[in-house]
Design a protein around this nucleic acid. Structure first.
Lengths: 198, 198
DNA sequence: CCTACCGATCGGTAGG
DNA sequence: CCTACCGATCGGTAGG
């Protein structure tokens, strides 16, 4: 019945992720989590230190996934900026779709982190967004992309991508890579220079 | 000192909106809310029936604002679909910027509504999104817009718009109407048919 | 609008 | 991993 592939701690993280996503961190009680795991509330604490520790692990694991994906996609500076941007978009979608529940928690529940974790998290996110701004700015400077306001463009681009966990369902008609391509196309057709564009 | 323009009930709603936005509905206690209003927790209940009633009012008021704005923008069927879509986008941005705190609550805290309000709310949101899909679909059918997948396009468009409360600050360098135009342009340049587009 | 309070539930711990 | 429990806090009410 139960998957024995996951350690008890990983089971806790995974079950908590699903609950945090659907009910929110604050509204999820340790009793609920325990019940979903088939154990008593007190027993969870032999595997974790606190409720917030679970949230911390989810948020920072995702941050790491986004970062390493971006590095791989955008590091090769020989490639044109537009190509690197497209690869970065695809990486972002890949991370999102690989674990939509964790992604939703990452996107919405981080504010329940207490200091200093919260500030640290926001700094990471800011650095990540700066990577996208940088790529768009480079593309605009080289004339590959049409982006009169790279800050604005980066904001809109990431916004479109980050809405994905609210509608994507694994096993739907579109595979993650298809979604990535469609999103990249839809977003970049609005950025890429074409003949009659000013 | 205090604004006497607002009824006590409206003050409660407004203060609650700000708290629900920054701390989340579940994590905001009635004691916190009372304290922010300069009163005791029990006293709030002479103006409202329950904590959830406040959330309900915020969410459904915004839904109404979005709907009436959309009607006004998109009802005139003589206008081309692309024009109506642009007007609908501008209306959406106007509602968002008119009260970013309430918009953020509308976008993220509705899931704390209990049934049947929750289902009712989701039905309203679905109908609203369908209006955008409809416009995009019409524009695609008439050849005004390039949108091979109107569902996908509508999702991405609203996603980009709905990220606004997370970065918009009233009194910034861009006026709401400027933001509306920029967003509409950035999004529609990716949709509008141009010469060399397939 | 306050004081005083209700039962319920919270995150977390001790001791086994 | 459970039982039994801690102090704190929750949303909400009664009575004035």
């Amino acid at each position: 019945m139960e998957s024995t592939l996951l350690s008890r701690k990983d089971q806790i993280d995974q079950t908590a992720t699903a609950l945090f996503r659907t009910r929110g961190f604050a509204a999820t009680s340790m009793r609920e989590l325990a019940s979903a795991l088939g154990m008593e509330a007190g027993s969870i604490y032999s595997h974790i230190r606190s409720k917030e520790e679970i949230l911390h692990r989810i948020c920072f694991r995702l941050a790491e996934d986004f970062f390493s994906g971006f590095e791989e996609a955008a590091a090769d500076e020989i490639l044109p900026a537009a190509t690197r941007l497209r690869r970065a978009v695809e990486s972002h979608v890949r991370v999102l779709t690989a674990d939509v529940a964790a992604s939703a928690v990452f996107l919405h529940e981080w504010r329940h982190l207490s200091e200093p974790a919260r500030t640290e998290f926001l700094a990471l996110r800011e650095r990540y967004e700066a990577g996208f701004r940088q790529l768009i700015g480079e593309g605009a400077a080289s004339g590959e992309l049409y982006a009169p306001d790279p800050i604005f463009a980066a904001l809109t681009l990431l916004a479109s991508l980050n809405w994905l966990p609210s509608w994507y369902r694994p096993g739907g008609p579109l595979a993650p890579i298809d979604i990535a391509h469609r999103l990249a196309n839809q977003l970049l057709f609005g950025l890429e220079v074409r003949g009659n564009q000013k």
